[in-house]
Amino acid sequence: MSDSEGDTQSELEALFEPQGTVESLTRWERVKQQYDLYVRAPLKVAINDWRTVVGLGLLILFGLAGTVGVWFTAAPSSGQAPFLLGPFENWAYPLGTDVLGRPIHTQLIHATPAMFQMILGGAGLAIGLATVVGLLSGFLRDTVVDRVLMTIADVVITIPGLPLVMVLVAVFQPRNPYVVGVLLGLDAWPALARQIRSQVLSIREEHYVEASRIMGLRIWTILRRDLLGQLTPYIAINAALAARGIIFGSVGLYFIGVLPFNALNWGVMMNMAYASGALNETAKLHWLLWPMLTIFLLSVSFVLLSQGLDSVFNVRLRARHAQTAGEGDTSASKGEHDNA
């Protein structure tokens, strides 16, 4: 879905073509080639795409806010500042304050670490589970294991996520952000697991995996060398999207007040602002809008990142196809092949 600038496309594809012949490479040369193929080339494609740059940039800012920012700003407390300052009125509190006199900006900053913990817990669980299930299922296609795993995936995909999370929250009353994240990530893994499974199936069909099997390489060697290498970008894209899901879910549940209010969260801010009638009182509106904007920006960074990664993946895929396309069809037949 994401062709970036067509002009540079072919040059970028060329990056993924291995230089030189495969035989007679020293160990060092091989390492360098791997580095070029898996690190330098993707990075180059990535910085050529504004989406990756903006997405990563925003994410780094949030990361800084969640680490250094927490360290530099005092935790917000009631009565610390004048009540309900508007944004940009007092530069000590650039985003304004709420009805209890807590600065908005420190509230936003101090809610960031817990958000990242939730994302780590949730996306970590979703990706981990999906990868294991997808790989297992793909490799053991049409066995009992495959069928059982896919049935479980189908069951989980069918149960609506938030209602399930709400019941679980009601029963277990989690407070640890990692646990909240894990609960929210519970319904994110099946779709990805299915996608990874079908990726594995299609990669299995490809000749070189077949070849390495014939050459007697053990299954885990094949996995490590060929599959994981190809699935990594794929998994990364989905991790970014799962992160967005965790943000949406957690903020939503905090906002309606289902999750316990022990931690600072943008959703909690929205809840308090909304409950105090921020929509009706212009003086309180900024209290609601800033967390909304923050959520939006963090989500944008993940969405952009996923799209950027997708284009890295695509360029690489095309380059690989060009390589395997064979002798007779090099540049001369470009036109003919476009329509074939």
Binding site: M292, S299, V303
Partner: peptide
């Protein structure tokens, strides 16, 4: 991209407002 990054409940709040 913007729409994908906006949770539905934020859309709801903006619409109400």
């Amino acid at each position: 991209v913007a729409l994908q990054s906006t949770p539905y409940y934020i859309v709801a709040l903006l619409l109400i407002y």
